[in-house]
């Protein structure tokens, strides 16, 4: 005679998926699943989830651990570089003040981050200076884009790319070489059909640390800035934060590979 399968709870199913069910109970679950296709499908889906999570995130185990996470570095008081959601929020909406120290509500909030602290103000300064130029907004214009990126890459000692932002309505106008702390830096300028301008400021990131995106806003300008690999980025424009966020994502991806 065939026994009616024993009633199985959700908790049993998950314990089954996680392999923590006692052997006796396991047999009961197997019998239940054989008779209950819906639950069998759910169990299969949960198992796929587990496998998928491993496939997605196990590669992190093989990544080199960033030097700043070594316990000695942590204990040595090297402050973290990145920001957390909240910290990013603290990077600041400042009224009116000039650049320099004025960009941050509290210098103490970002100790020992000369690169990062300077990044946004350098980028914004360069933006203000050159976006108002009518006749000479760039040194090399977009018609010679290949030459432009080769030249800048050579001067920066890193591979530089001019991200394609046409998906956001911005066409490349061109770019120029700049300097920051006696190091080369560069700026790409973009423009919409309406003449709205946006600049991407790039400089070398001396110690290859990485951060999350940070945001500052001032006088209608929005700047997103971040450190990524060998480079430091700031993208600046008079566009709203949401749009800028999407632009920043695109740029990030261009330099990801």
């Amino acid at each position: 005679m065939t026994a009616e399968p024993e009633r199985i709870t959700d908790e049993d199913l998950h314990a089954f998926v996680d392999g923590v069910l006692p052997a006796a109970r396991r047999a009961a679950v197997e019998a239940w699943l054989a008779a209950t296709p819906d639950d069998a499908a759910r169990v299969a889906a949960y198992r796929q989830q587990k496998e998928g999570l491993s496939a997605l995130f196990d590669p992190v185990l093989g990544e080199p651990v960033p030097a700043r996470l070594a316990p000695d570095a942590v204990r040595g008081g090297r402050r973290r570089v990145g920001v957390w959601l909240g910290r990013a929020a603290a990077a600041v909406l400042l009224a009116g003040a000039g650049f320099g120290g004025g960009w941050f509500a509290s210098e103490a909030e970002f100790p020992r981050l000369p690169t990062l602290r300077a990044l946004a103000s350098e980028g914004v300064s360069a933006h203000r200076v050159y976006t108002v130029e009518v006749r000479h907004p760039v040194e090399v214009d977009a018609s010679r884009q290949q030459h432009l990126v080769t030249w800048l890459s050579k001067r920066m000692g890193r591979e530089i790319r001019a991200p394609d932002l046409s998906g956001h309505g911005f066409k490349l106008v061109g770019g120029r070489l700049l300097h920051a702390d006696n190091q080369p830096a560069c700026q790409f300028m973009y423009e919409t059909d309406d003449g709205e301008r946006l600049t991407l400021y790039i400089r070398v990131n001396p110690d290859s640390r990485e951060t999350a995106f940070r945001i500052v806003e001032q006088d209608g300008l929005t700047a997103h800035y971040w450190l990524h690999g060998a480079l430091a980025f700031a993208v600046i424009g008079e566009i709203g934060r949401d749009r800028m966020e999407r632009v920043a994502h695109t740029i990030y991806r261009v330099f990801e590979s």
Partner: peptide, 27 residues
Amino acid sequence: IPSLRRYARALVGARGEADDLVHDCIE
């Protein structure tokens, strides 16, 4: 650290934030 990083990455998504979390944890 490797498994702390893996968990943090899966939890918060972004690499920089995840490593910040690990950093704070170690500290």
